[in-house]
Write a protein that binds this DNA or RNA. Structure first.
Lengths: 192, 192
DNA sequence: CTCGATTGTCTAGCAGTGCTAGGGTCGAAT
DNA sequence: ATTCGACCCTAGCACTGCTAGACAATCGAG
């Protein structure tokens, strides 16, 4: 028994190593630099080993995305918890979201920009993704305003944050005005 | 003289053919399907011919993006012109933007999602891109609200539209609520 | 009208990609 | 001690973007 358990532990450890390495490489040089050969070399195994853990590169991206979703959900809840009052909570939430995207561009790409083979807005959406949306909903629901479904409001607010995050990082928006844009967004969208 | 002019005309025509073919292929099967071989085969030339017109695939994407930007600017202006009053103009603008993104997903990707090697928010930003932003600014500037710079307001509104467009198309947002989300966005952001 | 030169195009090939088939090796169970 | 099976690696496939060099067609000069 114990030998089998040891093997499973080692396997799980190697899987974590793969994901951590892929993520590190992606953050350093972008996802284009994450090739199966390079990744295999860094973990000091041959390429086929990757395919005994994941169906392919897409699934590796998807796994990193799920990791990221869990982290983001935690970051959002922490920021919301540290703020007093609905309005301050929303501001903190928005800053935390944009901050996460800016600090973890590769992970953010894995979550929303690249094809990680993940389902969305469906029954079989992975739990971490639903939970990240839930983390937004918790703070945004209370400022949706009368007659506006919290879910709908959260979708719109989320879309705005996503747009700011991607356009800023792609160099489409000047970075220096980020804070003013955030304040404008919160001022207008959040009903006190 | 005339022979040289004829050659230039033919060259320009072939360049248009390349772009139209690339765009068509991308809309039909996605940009991943636009390989230099397939593209060359469709225009009935060999691959190196592509490189006598463009530096590489990236530049082809960039050229399609510029085409798209010009079309989008025209569509936005047409929609704004057909509406009466600032508020109706903004609503029409938002619908036109999202409609363009939904109807021309590959072109929209070329403009904002893929790397077309284009500069943004800088001095050397290509004219069509600046003009598309200007088309937004024309209608959005009048509803920015007191004390809010029109440019900043336009950036935020644009980011929100971009977020809605990309998340909807990626299956992250349920398509059936698109109109309600648009109305909510306009209601909150536009100062009458 | 002929003959170099220039222009244009194609064939063939390079290095790199994601992914997989097959053979060996090494450890575990009998 | 021996068999067996899990594990991993080498080698290779079909594809990618891109380019060098050979070849043919066209042009301008004599």
């Amino acid at each position: 028994m114990s030998v089998q358990e040891r093997k499973e532990r080692e396997r799980a450890g190697r899987e974590r190593l793969i994901l951590a390495t892929a993520r590190e490489l992606a953050e350093q040089q972008g996802w284009d630099a994450v090739t199966t050969r390079r990744l295999a070399e860094r973990i000091e195994y041959s390429q086929p080993v990757l395919y005994s853990h994941f169906r392919g590169k897409r699934e590796i991206i998807g796994a990193v995305a799920l990791e990221g979703a869990a982290e983001m959900a935690a970051a959002l809840r922490a920021a919301a918890r540290a703020a007093d009052g609905p309005r301050a909570r929303v501001t903190a939430l928005a800053r935390a979201y944009l901050d996460f995207a800016a600090r973890n561009p590769a992970v953010y790409d894995a979550m929303f920009q690249l094809d990680g083979g993940l389902a969305f807005a469906k029954e079989d959406t992975p739990e971490p993704l639903k939970d990240a949306f839930a983390a937004l909903l918790e703070s945004l629901g209370e400022v949706a305003g009368d007659g506006v479904p919290p879910g709908l409001f959260t979708e719109v607010f989320w879309a705005a944050l996503h747009g700011l995050a991607t356009l800023t990082r792609a160099g489409r928006l000047p970075p220096e005005d980020a804070e003013r844009r955030t304040r404008l967004l919160v001022d207008r969208l959040a009903m006190v």
